[in-house]
Write a protein that binds this DNA or RNA. Structure first.
Length: 568
RNA sequence: GCACCCGUAGCUCAGUUGGAUUAGAGCACCGGUCUACGAAACCGGGGGUCGUAGGUUCGAAUCCUACCGGGUGCGCCA
C-alpha cells in the first residue's frame, strides 16, 4: 500500500473519531515544499457540513489520528489544512533496497485493453500511433499492478473496404503481394467506389459474399490479411510494443456471432425495422429531426456493420473472457458510437452487470499549423517513415555528442533514443487534448522528454562504473542527511501511487510527469550531494539512493514501453 | 438542429475528485556554473486579463449558465 493510501486510511479513522465519519480526508501531495509532504484538504468541507470551525475540527482530528509511526509533524495551516511531514524512517523504509518497487493491487481484475486496431489493406500511419502506444503503456501498467490483462487488437479486416478491393481486383488485371501496391489498389478502388454507383453496389455485394463465406472471396481476402498483419507486426516490433499476433481479434472473428446479436436484440424487443434496415432506437439520442436516434445493426441488404461487431465484441469480452473492465482506446470521434454500443449492450444483456466498459478517447492529430490532418487525402506520414526519421535524427545527434562511439552501439542507441522520443512525446501529453504533430518538438531532446530521462539513468550507471561496484555489493543503509536527499526519497516513495492513479484514470502522462519530476529531483541531488568523495557510510547511502532512482526510472520507462540504454 | 472534446506565457504543454499572500515546466530570449562522481546537466531573470461575461463557494484555471473561437460526431463507411 502506498503512503498516500495509508495516510488516507488513518485520517479517515480520525475523521470518524472527530465526529465527521462521512467526510473524505482528501490527502494529496503538498502543493509546496514548505507545506510538508502531504496535505489533508477535506477538513474545511467537513467542518462546514458539521457546522463547526475548520481549525477546531482540524485540531480534533490531529488529536485523534493514529499516525505516529508514519508522521514526524502535523500542522494546521491556513483556513484548516493539515500539513503532514512524513517521518524520515518511513521514507527510508520505502526506498530501501529490499522494498518492492511495485506492490500488486489488493484485488486483481481481468482487464481487456482494446488498442491499436488498424484497418488492414493499408500501411500503418501516424494516426495509429496514439492508440497503439497509449494502450500498450496501460496494458503494461495494469499487469505490473498484478491485474490479468487481455490485449485485444480489433483490426479492421471485414468491412466495405475489402469489398471494394476484391471487386476492383476482380475487374482489373492488377496483381501484387506487396502491401504498398495493395494500398495503391485500395486507393483506386475507393475512387471508383465514390464515383461509380454500380461499382459501389458490386462492392457491397462482395462484402455480403465474403461475410457469407464464399470460398473464392475468402481465399483472396486471407492473402491480403496475411500480408497486412505481418506488416503491422513488424511495426509493433519496431515500436517495442507488447502486441503479438495472438492478440489479434479481428472484426471478422465475430462474423459467426452477428446473426445471434440480431436475434437476441429482437428477442429483447429492442429491434425495429426502418427503411429496410434493422435498428435499435435510443431515446437518449436524437436524430436530426428530433426523434429518437436509430443505430443500424443490419443493413437493408443483410450486411452487418461495425456497430454489430462491437456489440458482439462486448459480449465476448465481458461474458466469454469474463472481463471486469474493458478499456477501449480509440480516437474521440467514436465517443458517441461507443456510448451507444455500451447502452445497447446493457439493455440487451450483452455485458455482465458488474463489468465496467470504458471508452478512453484521445484527441485529433493536428499539423504544426494547428489544422487537422485530413486522413482520407493521402499524404499522411507512414509510421515506418516517421520512425526512420526519428532514428536518423537521433543518430545524428548521438554522433555529434560522441564521435568515438562504435557504429553498432551508435545504431542501437539511436533506435532507443529516437523511438523513445517519439513515444514519449505522445505519452507525455494529456490524451484528450488535440495533438500537434511537430517534428522539431518531438525530436528535441530537452525538457520533459525520453532522452532527458534516459540521460539521468545513464549518469547514475556511470557513477557505479566509476565506483566499480553494484548496488547488490553495497553493505550499508540509506540515511537522510540533507534536503536534496530527503526530496529524492519522497519522490521515489511516490512511484506506487502514481502507477495506481494511471491504472485508474488511463492517463499515462501522469507517469511521464512523475518520472520527469523524479529525474529533476535526482539531478538537483546529484549537483548538490557529492557521492564518491564521501566517507563510506554516506557514500553507500547515496549510492543506494542513486540506484533506487535508476531502477525506478528504468521501470517507469519500461512501463511506458521505452528502452533505457546503459550509456549514451 | 442535437451532442461530445478543446481554449492556460511568443511556441509546446502540466496544473491530481475546487484549496494556500507570487497559476507551474520545457523551448525560445537574457545572465551565471565544468583543469568534470558525464555541461544531453544545474542555478538565476524577464514573460500569463487561465477565451469572454455572469453565477455557486470560506476558496474557482478546475463546478454551473450564456456567449465567442477551434475541432469532431450524428441510419445503411469503419
Amino acid at each position: 500500500m502506498n503512503v498516500r493510501q495509508q495516510l488516507t486510511e488513518r485520517f479517515q479513522a480520525a475523521f470518524a473519531a472527530a465526529g465527521v465519519p462521512d467526510a473524505a480526508p482528501l490527502v494529496q501531495p503538498a502543493g509546496k515544499p514548505e507545506f510538508g509532504d502531504y496535505q489533508v484538504n477535506g477538513v474545511m468541507a467537513a467542518a462546514k457540513r458539521a457546522g463547526s470551525k475548520p481549525r477546531d475540527l482540524a485540531q480534533q482530528i490531529i488529536a485523534a489520528v493514529d499516525a505516529q509511526d508514519l508522521v514526524e509533524k502535523l500542522e494546521i495551516a491556513g483556513p484548516g489544512f493539515i500539513n503532514v511531514t512524513l517521518a524520515n524512517s518511513v521514507l527510508i523504509e520505502s526506498v530501501a533496497p529490499d522494498a518492492a518497487l511495485i506492490t500488486p493491487a489488493s484485488h486483481s481484475e481481468t482487464v481487456v485493453v482494446d488498442y491499436s486496431a488498424p484497418n488492414l489493406a493499408k500501411e500503418m500511419h501516424v494516426g495509429h500511433l496514439r492508440s497503439t502506444i497509449i494502450g500498450d503503456a496501460i496494458a503494461r501498467i495494469l499487469e505490473a499492478l498484478g491485474h490479468r490483462v487481455i490485449r485485444q487488437n480489433h483490426v479492421g479486416d471485414w468491412g466495405t473496404q475489402f469489398g471494394m478491393l476484391l471487386t476492383y481486383l476482380a475487374e482489373t488485371s492488377d496483381r501484387s503481394d506487396e502491401l504498398a501496391d495493395i494500398e495503391e489498389f485500395y486507393r483506386s478502388a475507393k475512387a471508383r467506389f465514390d464515383a461509380d454507383a454500380q461499382f459501389a453496389d458490386r462492392a457491397r455485394q462482395a462484402v455480403v459474399a465474403l461475410q457469407s463465406g464464399d470460398p473464392a472471396a475468402l481465399a483472396q481476402w486471407q492473402k491480403f490479411i496475411r500480408i497486412s498483419l505481418s506488416h503491422c507486426q513488424a511495426i509493433y516490433d519496431r515500436l517495442g510494443t507488447t502486441l503479438t499476433m495472438a492478440d489479434v481479434m479481428a472484426e471478422s472473428a465475430y462474423n459467426d456471432a452477428l446473426p445471434g446479436i440480431i436475434s437476441d436484440l429482437a428477442e429483447k424487443g429492442l429491434l425495429s425495422e426502418s427503411e429496410g434496415a434493422q435498428c435499435v432506437f435510443l431515446d437518449e439520442y436524437q436524430a436530426k429531426d428530433g426523434s429518437p436516434m436509430g443505430v443500424i445493426v443490419q443493413k437493408s441488404d443483410g450486411g452487418y456493420l461495425y456497430s454489430t461487431t462491437d456489440l458482439a465484441a462486448v459480449r465476448h469480452r465481458t461474458i466469454t473472457l469474463n472481463a471486469d473492465r474493458v478499456i477501449y482506446l480509440t480516437d474521440a470521434r467514436q465517443s458517441q458510437h461507443f456510448a451507444q454500443i455500451f447502452l445497447i449492450s446493457r439493455r440487451a444483456g450483452f455485458s455482465r452487470e458488474a463489468a465496467v466498459l470504458e471508452h478512453q478517447p484521445f484527441g485529433n492529430m493536428l499539423g504544426k499549423d494547428g489544422r487537422p490532418f485530413k486522413s482520407r487525402e493521402g499524404g499522411l506520414i507512414k509510421l515506418n517513415e516517421l520512425l526512420d526519421e526519428a532514428v536518423a535524427k537521433a543518430l545524428k545527434l548521438i554522433t555529434e555528442k560522441d564521435p568515438e562511439l562504435q557504429a553498432s552501439q551508435r545504431e542501437s542507441l539511436a533506435r532507443m533514443v529516437g523511438i523513445g522520443a517519439v513515444k514519449y512525446a505522445d505519452l507525455s501529453k494529456n490524451r484528450t487534448s488535440n495533438y500537434i504533430f511537430d517534428w522539431d518538438q518531438m525530436l528535441s531532446f530537452e525538457g520533459n522528454t525520453a532522452p532527458y530521462l534516459q540521460y539521468a539513468y545513464t549518469r547514475i550507471r556511470s557513477i557505479f562504473r566509476r565506483a566499480n561496484t553494484t548496488a547488490a555489493e553495497l553493505e550499508g543503509v540509506i540515511t537522510i542527511q540533507t534536503p536534496p536527499e530527503r526530496a529524492l526519497c519522497l519522490s521515489l516513495s511516490r512511484f506506487q501511487e502514481v502507477l495506481e492513479q494511471v491504472a485508474g484514470d488511463v492517463y499515462p502522462h501522469h507517469l511521464c510527469s512523475y518520472l520527469y519530476d523524479l529525474a529533476s529531483v535526482f539531478m538537483r541531488f546529484y549537483e548538490a550531494c557529492p557521492i564518491l568523495s564521501e566517507a563510506d557510510d554516506v557514500k553507500t547511502s547515496r549510492l543506494l539512493l542513486a540506484d533506487r532512482t535508476a531502477i525506478t526510472l528504468k521501470k517507469g520507462l519500461e512501463l511506458l514501453g521505452i528502452e533505457t540504454p546503459e550509456r549514451m
